[in-house]
Amino acid sequence: MVAGLIAPSRAPDSVPAGVPAPVRGAALSLRDVHHAFALRKAPLPVLDGVSFDVEPGAFVALLGPSGCGKSTLLRLVAGLEPPNEGRIAVDGAPLRGPHPSRGLVFQDPTLYPWRSVIGNVAVGPEARGRARAESGRVEEALALVGLSGFSDAFPHQLSGGMAQRVALARALVNAPPLLLLDEPLGKLDSLTRLTMQAELVRLWQDKGFTALLVTHDVEEALMLAQRILVFSDRPARIRADIACDRPYPRHREDPGVVADRRAILDLLGTA
């Protein structure tokens, strides 16, 4: 089970020694996905026929009003719940439960308070029974998010931004070809947020994973993603599929960004 998780590296000779090899991004496809919450009185529909494809290595933002069902969509893609209807496939294979090849970062860091920083990052290898074999990768993942000096700290000693970096390192340690980000910067202060946005882009460019980012922040989507899927109110349906292929690093004041921002806000405002 474990051997297939670590995707083969794309170009091992171009990688500096000591850095984990880039992974090939996974392709994702959703076909007519419906989902509803089983409430006591009547089922509450949250996803209404969502279909889209993501090509390997793309950075796609799922944008929509809060509570519209985008986080549910991410949970389905992670495999934490099966969809009521429809098909979700990664690299052509239908999902069967969660898998370490699809990393998930939540809005809350949800670190284990009883584990040190390094212990939290090591959860992935430990859960797969490869703690010893992959201890080097744990250190590397921590270095990747700039927290090498904090291995032995405990979560309650970290700031919100640091805790979220640890959560990111924890997801990256498995070298997932698909990284699912559920408003990971939603609760951070605006300065930390800007820094972390830049870091996310850098990590994505370095590693080559496919990124799926749920956000309700239009600007964040425009700064990070190559493609933005705009969702309607609940039950969520795709209202617009916007290509966004400006080079990185992007600037907030770029007239194109400002115009796109206005257009998307209009779209959401009339929703």
Binding site: L5, A78, P98, P100, L104
Partner: peptide, 29 residues
Amino acid sequence: VNKAYYDVARTLGAREGFLILKVAIPAAL
């Protein structure tokens, strides 16, 4: 125990044994 703790572990490849011994029990201590 915070249900999100289980979600995190499951997406990282944990099976039931890990969830009980390494997540549920430490969280309940």
